[in-house]
Simulated scan of single mutants.
Amino acid sequence: MPIKSYLAHPHDGKKEELIKALSTLGQCEVIPAENKDVLVVVTETDTKVEEETLKQKLETISSLKLLAMVSGFNTPKKN
């Protein structure tokens, strides 16, 4: 299952709006920085198709200025 972490930068004054938008996506965990206008976003999907669908949803969020992947890995499923 692909797990990725990102730094999400909102447009000016849109941090709370971005938190709400990301939180509605079931495969995202959002952790806002306390002293900066940035969010840590961790995503987890079961398939590459789900990962691509999530990526497309992220790209449509208007309050998102920049999304930079910090780390990504794929954990094989145990049978």
Rank of each mutant, 00 (worst) to 15 (best):
M1I: 14
M1W: 10
M1T: 13
M1Y: 12
P2D: 11
P2M: 10
I3A: 04
I3M: 10
S5E: 08
S5Q: 09
Y6R: 06
Y6M: 12
L7S: 08
H9N: 06
P10Q: 01
H11A: 05
H11E: 10
D12Y: 08
K14Y: 00
E17F: 00
L18R: 02
I19D: 00
I19F: 13
K20Y: 06
K20E: 14
A21Q: 09
A21S: 13
S23G: 05
T24H: 13
L25M: 14
L25A: 08
G26F: 08
G26N: 14
E29T: 13
V30P: 05
I31A: 09
P32W: 02
P32Q: 03
P32M: 03
K36W: 07
D37A: 07
V40K: 13
V41A: 09
V41F: 05
V42K: 13
V42F: 09
T43F: 10
T45W: 02
T47Q: 08
T47P: 10
K48P: 11
K48N: 15
V49Q: 06
V49F: 07
E50L: 07
E50Y: 03
E50V: 07
E51A: 05
E52S: 10
T53G: 02
L54V: 09
L54D: 04
Q56K: 15
Q56I: 07
L58P: 01
L58N: 03
E59K: 15
I61A: 05
S62W: 08
S62M: 11
S62A: 14
S63I: 01
L64Y: 02
L66M: 14
L67V: 10
M69E: 15
V70T: 15
F73W: 12
N74H: 07
T75L: 04
P76W: 00
K77S: 01
K77L: 02
N79W: 03
